[in-house]
Amino acid sequence: MPMLELQDVHAYYGNIHALKGISLTVEEGEIVTLIGANGAGKTTTLRTISGLLKPRQGKVYLEGEDLDQYKAHEIVYKGVAMVPEGRGIFAKLTVAENLDMGAYSRRDKKGIAEDLERVFELFPRLKERRNQVAGTLSGGEQQMLATARALMARPRLLLMDEPSMGLAPVLVEDVFDRIMEINHEGTTILLVEQNAHMALQVAHRGYVLQTGEIVLGDTADGLRQNPMVQKAYLGME
């Protein structure tokens, strides 16, 4: 049974038909990436999975369970955490308080303390700045914090929305290294990216979205070799 399965999901913003029948699967342990241009529906897809937006038609299954009945805050308890677009950190709270918030859905103090150590190992910079107000962090540090905060929920499925957005190229590589590391430790990842080049390097499989529809789904290697992908998303002629 796949970790996550979307079956013919249609979603709307008012009258705008944003997703026109998305079907995809994410298997346990995978990194799957959604690539596509602005407005293709990548973020919308993540929003329908995390419950911020309800599909008008079609189903979202997490390990076979229909997520339709759950609200966004309940889906967190199902083991799905999201790193929202633009990071959505709590700017006036400290780094440590932000991480505390990440563990809001949990009550096991011991496990939380362990995970705190783990994310500090993953992002040593955050440990140095644990008492700093999050709004004063640099863009890269804020991205680290948003990722670390999502990990504090100890998710089985991590949804990441544009983790490379607005970051210097050297930091982008670092972010993707961390994504691989998180995945190696056993977290399944669904990654939305405009930076198709980097995304296809770390992902096992990928889907290409165009105006609310999946036009292509293949292994990351397969997509990299695909002439259409090369032309449209990798900038190769």
Binding site: L52, K71, H73, V76, Y77, P84, F90, S105
Partner: peptide, 8 residues
């Protein structure tokens, strides 16, 4: 929105 995504 982010608070909701934390499970609040």
């Amino acid at each position: 929105v982010a608070a909701g995504l934390m499970g609040v």
